[in-house]
Design a protein around this nucleic acid. Structure first.
Lengths: 326, 326
DNA sequence: ATGAAAGCGCTAACAT
DNA sequence: ATGTTAGCGCTTTCAT
């Protein structure tokens, strides 16, 4: 009767009222542990974030909550601040608490942890990116084709030597972005070289590579940066070195959501459809939970648009070293 | 033996190894639901946020995680996006899942929900602020005395008519800030009037009140704004109306953490010791859980420092209408 | 239709 | 010291 099936079982309204009143009197609180233990279902999913910065997790959760909607399932967020050991503990904890499924923005080096989760029978889906070599685990991510928008923009401004700054992070989307970058340049009739792609070891920092390039021969006139955190680092690096940013070198990047960008320093960026990513991820996880038989593949969330900020501009004509258009 | 009490029980290393191997073989996963049901303890606490924006939740969680440290307790974050009904569902869910305690940044109008939580026997502590009239529920919050720093700053710049912009939000810290503001002005020998305190209905927006004031007689030369979200609104309002911000009117505010401020438009703000707030809150909740007998009172987290941005400057001398210093 | 009983997986208490 | 059992609170199943 406390299940809300009163009408269906033809119980008088009066009785229902009485029971509900009694329940309130004794302060009755259903025990979700007992229920979960019995039903083998907790109506909770875990959402694992490395951090809650820059509104990213906020927007993801908007999508997740929207998708879950009136469903009884509750998203439980955990956050490990990039600490691999903590991530492991949190994942174990979620699994032991028998969440119905897990959404996880993965760390690069967590392969065994993620495998462990699925081995224990908990549906897992990656959010945003996926470690390479874990193709059996599905992933909802932003379509890397969006890279094209930024490259087009730089090409339209006359840039011909564009250097890609990324991170050596062993993830599939990260790699896919490099391919799109490469293809975009080739489609434009350029012949990018292997050395135009510089990978640093973290996804926040860029090394000194960019400065050396600028001081060398045939310096790039623009950088395409894989993650916006890195772009901010680059901007500051250039600023400290006295390189004027839109004038001498342009910077375009990926992943800024409209909100975080308008609040921050105005990078030219391709905005990510973050809410949609969250929604798609939740939707697919729920279907994995409902129908464990068919495994979804990797799926891309399309969308995003170029936000032209103050870090891109036409090629400086002052230096005659630039090669002409083909 | 799976409890890690092997040494203490003098079980041979070999046996331990064998058991662990067996456990791995059968893919044994302890069931936290059963354990929680039996022990009446889940080693989980709930953390309830209205939103995950601006790094605030991020920094709070740094403090919480630091404090929980090696303890087995896991913080489960939920986020309701300001939706009161969703907050109610999430709180119920946490209670029914028998979390050991709850940290909650409260909404203004959630009194009955919060009361309900404690009536069901779950330790609850408010984070950052507390609804008025719920003094039985403890609260960890930033010491409102920090308001003084901002007011001092404005006074030192020569401002004598400073208007307080806050929100009618029926919370204790919010009110305390007004008192500190008032006292700071009195201490400086000024006689603030009731009409120098303007309250709007939301904590993000300011009405048109500020503009009207500026156009009226004896206009203020500075605003002290209770929350930084409001300060941003005010800044834009003034900007749209063509009022130059540091030149004609100064704005100082509260609550910006160093990070979010440096990324955003450079408001003059008093930075909040957000990580410490998180730590203090977690620490006190844990002690409430361990010793349910003595209830902690409200406690303030001290700290924070003035970050002088680009929205405060000396009083414009152009208008002779300003009263002289007493 | 209604009620009784079994059992989910664990641990604390008890008995050996 | 070691093994056994009862029971946490719920739902499902089986018997009436």
């Amino acid at each position: 009767m406390l299940n809300g099936k009163a009408a269906e079982r033809k119980i008088s309204v009066e009785t229902v009222q009485r029971v509900l009143a009694a329940a309130k009197d004794v302060n009755y609180t259903p025990n979700a542990l007992a229920r979960g233990l019995r039903q083998k279902k907790t109506h909770a999913i875990g959402v694992v974030f490395p951090h809650l910065r820059n509104d990213w997790a906020h927007l993801i959760m908007r999508g997740v909550v929207e998708e879950l909607g009136a469903s009884e399932t509750v998203p439980m967020i955990v956050c490990h601040h990039g600490d691999a050991e903590l991530e492991a503990r949190l994942l174990r904890s979620l699994v032991e608490r028998r969440v119905d499924g897990i959404i996880c923005n993965p760390l690069r080096n967590g392969m065994d942890r993620y495998r462990d989760v699925v081995r224990r029978g908990v549906p897992l889906i990656f959010l945003g990116d996926a470690p390479k070599g874990l193709d059996e685990i599905p992933c909802s991510a932003w379509d890397p084709a969006a890279v094209h928008l930024a490259v087009e923009h730089l090409l339209a401004l006359g840039h011909r030597r564009i250097v890609y700054l990324g991170s050596r992070d062993n993830r599939v989307i990260s790699e896919a972005r490099r391919h799109v970058f490469w293809d975009s340049l080739r489609q434009a009739g350029l012949s990018p070289s292997r050395r135009d792609i510089i990978l640093s070891s973290t996804s926040e920092d860029v090394g000194d590579g960019p400065l050396e390039l600028l001081r060398g021969e045939n310096p790039p006139t623009a950088f395409f940066v894989e993650y916006d955190d890195q772009a901010v680092s680059l901007y500051q690096l250039l600023d400290d070195a006295g390189v004027a940013c839109p004038r001498n070198v342009s910077i375009a990047t990926m992943g800024g959501s409209p909100r975080s960008v308008s609040a921050g320093c105005c990078l030219t960026t391709v905005s990510a459809p973050v809410v949609d990513e969250g929604r798609a991820c939740a939707q697919r996880l729920m279907s994995m939970i409902d129908e464990p038989e068919h495994k979804p593949e990797r799926a891309y969330v399309h969308g995003g648009s170029l936000l032209v900020g103050q870090t891109t501009g036409p090629v400086a004509n002052s230096k005659p070293g630039s090669r002409g258009t083909p």
